[in-house]
């Protein structure tokens, strides 16, 4: 079952500016869905539409298999969200901030201490949220999203402005929430490296279009498909002939001959054929495209 399912979601801020173009987002239940794309790609707009913060113009949005427009209040009971910068009342303490939302969600008051414990903010006492560091503010915002024990959490760039330790802490917290409480998490970021360690599914967006969507394994498969084997030999022309005779399509780059990733037995066979033809083989390398370069490659198009 999909937790979120959008169909042909399009959005314009003006007649000329198409911000989202036929976005079909599918977030499976129980997943940690990494929604990545460069700044201005359409991530926040998509998430704001899903949460009803922007008026939908075209397409459909289903959350928990229900149309968002028709079941807004019912759906929002089970969603916790943090969009862009933390939303906190600076003149109130951490507990008081949570009390505001507790009154709306009508969840048990004991949840306030529980979620503060989860995010490590139990000891903030009378300190006002306005005096918190950015990391503490982010953690308090996450506590707000967890307060009513939602089934789905939507976090838009939650690690923005955090130091490496803060990023690791939040990453670990999200992993724990997903595995222990089976909460579906949608986390957006413009850095793949930042979220690839925790996500199970990935959606790549740029210029308002979804360029890739699938499991992390599928992305890894794409990674292997875009890997190359490079050969450096004493005779390029003959090497190319040998490769063509093996039904391969070689290309030349920086004095090296590149072929798409192949089975290692075939690599050995080509090597033997080159040696037989008195061609000196200086080196054979595998060039692996890391996920980051795939992301850059996808978003460049």
């Amino acid at each position: 079952m999909n937790c979120i399912h959008t169909t042909n979601l399009s959005h314009r801020f003006s007649k000329k500016e198409l911000v989202l173009d036929q976005v079909n987002l599918q977030v499976p239940e129980g997943a940690i869905y990494g929604f990545i794309g460069p700044n201005g790609a359409g991530k926040t707009t998509t998430l704001k539409l899903i949460l009803g913060l922007l008026k939908k113009q075209q397409g459909t949005i289903e959350v928990f298999d229900k149309q968002f427009d028709k079941h807004r209040v019912e759906i929002l009971k089970n969603i916790g969200s943090l969009i862009e910068v933390p939303s906190l009342y600076g003149h109130l303490t951490a507990k008081e901030n949570l009390k505001i939302w507790q009154k709306i969600y009508q969840c048990p008051k004991s949840r306030i201490d529980e979620v503060l414990e989860i995010v490590g903010l139990s000891e903030t006492g009378k300190k006002k949220a306005g005096k918190f560091s950015l990391g503490m503010k982010q953690r308090l915002s996450i506590a707000t999203t967890l307060l009513h024990s939602p089934k789905l959490i939507i976090l838009d760039e939650p690690t923005n402005g955090l130091d490496p330790n803060g990023i690791i802490e939040i990453r670990e917290l999200l992993k724990k929430l997903n595995t222990e409480q089976n909460i579906t998490i949608v986390i957006s970021s413009h850095l793949l490296a930042e979220i690839e360690k925790i996500v199970t599914h990935i959606g790549v967006i740029n210029y308002g279009k979804i360029l890739f969507q699938g499991t992390l394994e599928e992305l890894h498969l794409k990674q292997s498909q875009t890997s190359f084997i490079s050969f450096e030999t004493s005779d390029k022309e003959k090497t190319i002939e040998v490769m063509k005779s093996n039904n391969l399509t070689p290309t030349i780059s920086n004095e090296q001959i590149l072929i798409p990733s192949i089975d290692k037995k075939l690599i050995a066979k080509i090597n033997s054929q080159l040696v037989v033809q008195n061609i000196d083989v200086y080196q054979i390398n595998t060039i692996n495209n890391d996920l980051e370069s795939i992301f850059i490659d996808l978003t460049k198009k």
Binding site: K48, L51, G52, L53, V73, E74, L76, K77, I79, S81, I83, E84, V85, P86, S87, L88, Y89, G90, W101, I104, Y105, T144
Partner: peptide, 12 residues
Amino acid sequence: NNTWKQLHTTPQ
């Protein structure tokens, strides 16, 4: 406090 968005995503 940037809280309009938080308020508008509560079930009210």
